[in-house]
């Protein structure tokens, strides 16, 4: 009984998947609550194009890839972190995009729009949508930030620095501080030494946005590694005197793009949806009402209110010239990074 029920439901699922879907549907695969599924945005898009929008969600990049692999043709638009775009393209999970179909394409910041992470064999596989940083936040009332990452190592802030207990993040920062390519550092000993040198500086490790804010209020630190989106919320939503520094050595950056799924039943609607997502209309409302990461659309950034964090800090092209984007890491590299960080922590604990 149970077995036949399972077979029946499996057949039903297969039938549903095989059914030709209405051409007027745009099926989006994204993190939940990440911009594309804002009700007002979906409604505006549906009203102007006649397409209906359906969402499905993933909880990790691996899950996103698995969903694309196991359900070809089930999606039209998919959000892919730029570290995974080429992999998805190589596996044939997404298809090339004709940039002419994206009317806002010319307004996207060239550094993000033309990133090599979105291209395979000259074809465009992802439209730059949003980005953000892991860099340094500081107390604007107590710290003159300067413009170097070595503020973390500055004896003036000894015992007043906080970092996150995260091996990849800290190895990346040390790689930037020692002038290396953070995704493929060749001088690991320099990174080891740089991290060891951080010992007298470190006051505490933080582990969540909430904890960061509480400790900042309790004056536990003056300078700390932080995420740009979170720093924006600390300053805007909580009114804390938080400044954000993008050092001349560069910062850790992530970049999300919107891609066109292979086998999309409605590529035309999908491209319209992507076009709407990268438009200033959508972004400005998203950032002002909800709080968004930075937009890859320079025009959209300039339409934010003058005092918007995203415009003030991340809107400066000079500051963002030296960003290094996170690339996928092999298991071996992750293990090496963790070993370096654990060895360093053993030294901190002594």
């Amino acid at each position: 009984m149970r077995t036949s029920g399972m077979i029946a439901s499996a057949l039903l699922a297969a039938a549903v998947a095989a059914q030709p879907l209405a051409a007027a549907e745009v099926r989006v695969l994204n993190w939940q609550g990440y911009g594309t599924d804002e009700t007002w945005g979906v409604e505006a898009f549906e009203a102007s194009t006649g397409h209906t929008v359906v969402h499905d969600y993933f909880n990790s990049e691996q899950e996103m890839l698995t969903k694309l692999r196991t359900s070809p043709g089930a999606y039209d638009v998919v959000l892919i972190n730029s570290a995974f775009t080429i992999q998805a393209a190589e596996e044939g999970l997404i298809q090339p995009i004709d940039s002419a179909a994206i009317t806002n394409f010319g307004d996207l910041s060239p550094g993000l729009r033309d990133a090599a992470e979105f291209r395979l064999d000259g074809d465009l596989y992802g439209v730059a949508w949003t980005w953000g940083l892991t860099s340094i936040a500081y107390d604007t009332e107590e710290v003159d930030p300067g413009n170097t990452i070595n503020i973390l190592w500055d004896p003036a802030h000894a015992g007043n620095v906080a970092v996150r207990d995260d091996s990849v993040e800290n190895v990346y920062l040390a790689a930037l501080a020692t002038g290396q390519n953070m995704n493929a550092p060749d001088d690991l000993d320099a990174i080891r030494q740089k991290l060891r040198d951080l010992k007298p500086q470190i006051r505490t490790f933080w582990s969540s946005e909430d904890e960061w804010n509480k400790e900042f209020v309790a004056d536990a630190f003056d300078v700390a590694v932080y995420w740009s989106g979170s720093a924006s919320r600390s300053a805007k939503a909580f009114g804390l005197p938080v400044g954000y520094l993008i050092p001349e050595e560069g910062a850790i950056a992530w970049l999300d793009g919107l891609s066109l799924a292979a086998g999309s039943a409605n590529p035309e609607g999908a491209l319209q949806f992507i076009d709407y997502m990268v438009s200033p209309d959508h972004f400005v409302r998203w950032d002002t009402e909800v709080g968004a990461p930075a937009s890859a659309n320079g025009v959209a950034m300039n339409q934010l209110p003058e005092d918007a964090f995203n415009r003030q800090v991340l809107g400066d092209p000079a500051a963002t010239a030296n960003l290094q984007f996170m690339a996928p890491l092999s298991d071996e590299t992750r293990e090496t990074f963790l070993e370096i960080w654990e060895e360093t922590k053993a030294w901190y604990a002594e």
């Binding site: 207990d165 505490t204 490790f205 922590k345 901190y348 604990a349």
Partner: peptide, 10 residues
């Protein structure tokens, strides 16, 4: 980890 922070590696 929670009580030792940077001193809490074992």
């Amino acid at each position: 980890r929670l009580l030792g922070g940077p001193k809490g590696t074992v």
